[in-house]
Design a protein around this nucleic acid. Sequence first.
DNA 1: TCACGGATCAGACGTACGTCGAAGACGGTG
DNA 2: CACCGTCTTCGACGTACGTCTGATCCGTGA
Lengths: 118, 118
Amino acid sequence: MPKALPVLDTTAPVCCSPIAAGPVGEVDALGIALRLKALADPVRVRLLSLILADATTGVCTCDLAPAVGVTEATVSHHLKQLRDAGLVEGTRKGTNVYYRPNAEGLGALCRVIDPGCC
Amino acid sequence: MPKALPVLDTTAPVCCSPIAAGPVGEVDALGIALRLKALADPVRVRLLSLILADATTGVCTCDLAPAVGVTEATVSHHLKQLRDAGLVEGTRKGTNVYYRPNAEGLGALCRVIDPGCC
DNA sequence: TCACGGATCAGACGTACGTCGAAGACGGTG
DNA sequence: CACCGTCTTCGACGTACGTCTGATCCGTGA
């Protein structure tokens, strides 16, 4: 995409109404696409599923890395994407930081995509 | 992603259960990611919203191209992605082909992503 | 039958993305 | 304070993706 500057605050839970409600403007489409892109990767899907599995306790980076089979650096990179998209939240507890899902962001994203549910 | 061969039949409506239900396997994650990637583009989001807007009548490529401001070839390329992901369906009527949404595929995708809705 | 127009394909170009190794930045512990 | 484990940042490399122009297919209508 050799266009537009992606300088949007994607941490907010998706601003607009479902895409089924009518034609989506350029900037709204970009916001939706950026958030979807945050999840459009096998590793990130697996990371999110792991984080959702231990939603109450939270999971740290060092546990996630071996679970998905990539470097800790790569996991950190992916978690940053998910964090920037407002899909997960990380809180530091001592040495390591524990990640938990952001239900609001996830729900909003699902609500935008869906054709008629929710 | 210098790994795995993406030789999956993504036209089917996503096989597995919600990612919140537990850790997702490698191949399932790939399937989900591929389908999400099909929607993780501003142009494709707008295309889908336009197709959803005229779900009953259907929309042809020549109408979509000027609406999103790209070449017909590019629109055709994007529509192929959406078609391969099982998100839309195209039926030829004479000279031009009319696209309409695939509610099953869209619903399944939403259902996989959601944290608790639907 | 032939020309026209819509749709797709094919190749090319530039940019973005995922991955890694190495280095830096915090926090805790001896 | 020095050491160490955890997390993040920084370059760098290779691949994938979006976009275009030009070519090819296939119905339609004169």
